[in-house]
Amino acid sequence: MIINNLKLIREKKKISQSELAALLESSRQTINGIEKNKYNPSLQLALKIAYYLNTPLEDIFQWQ
């Protein structure tokens, strides 16, 4: 199971779900699903999230 700190990191950087979704060329619903652990992002999307949040991938997503 993958757990994530996306919501915590996103809020700390003062970025809304909609703003992050626009940067990622994704939907706000996708970001919401990832944050609620209802959806696991593809590797490509996970890497883009890490890039746009300027945060190491392993700080956002962790195996448990």
Rank of each mutant, 00 (worst) to 15 (best):
N37W: 09
N37Q: 08
L57N: 00
E35F: 04
M1S: 05
L45Y: 06
K48R: 12
K38G: 07
M1T: 07
N4V: 08
F61C: 03
E11S: 08
R28S: 13
F61W: 05
A50L: 04
M1H: 06
D59F: 09
I3C: 13
S26M: 15
E11H: 07
L8Y: 11
L24C: 15
P56R: 09
W63Q: 03
K48M: 10
Y51L: 09
L23N: 07
L57M: 09
A50H: 02
A46V: 05
I2E: 05
I3A: 07
R10E: 03
N54A: 12
L23R: 10
Q29V: 10
I34H: 01
Q62M: 11
Y51A: 08
S27V: 06
L20Q: 00
K7E: 10
S16V: 03
A50T: 03
A22Q: 12
I49H: 00
I9M: 07
E25G: 15
Y51N: 08
N5M: 07
K14Y: 06
Q62W: 06
Q64K: 13
S16G: 07
K12V: 09
I60Y: 02
L8S: 15
A46H: 02
L6A: 01
N5L: 08
I60V: 08
E11K: 11
T55L: 06
I60F: 04
I2Q: 07
K36C: 11
L24M: 08
S42K: 05
L24E: 00
F61I: 01
I31A: 02
G33D: 15
E35K: 02
Q17P: 04
Q17V: 13
S26K: 10
Q17F: 04
K12W: 08
Y51Q: 10
Q64E: 14
K36I: 12
I34M: 04
A21L: 04
E11Y: 06
I34N: 02
E11M: 12
T30K: 10
Y52M: 10
Q17Y: 08
L45H: 02
T55R: 04
Q17L: 12
T30W: 11
E35C: 05
L43M: 13
N32H: 11
L8M: 13
K48F: 05
I2P: 05
E19I: 09
Q17M: 09
G33I: 08
Q44K: 13
E25I: 07
A50W: 05
L6E: 04
T55M: 08
L8K: 15
K36G: 09
G33E: 15
S27I: 06
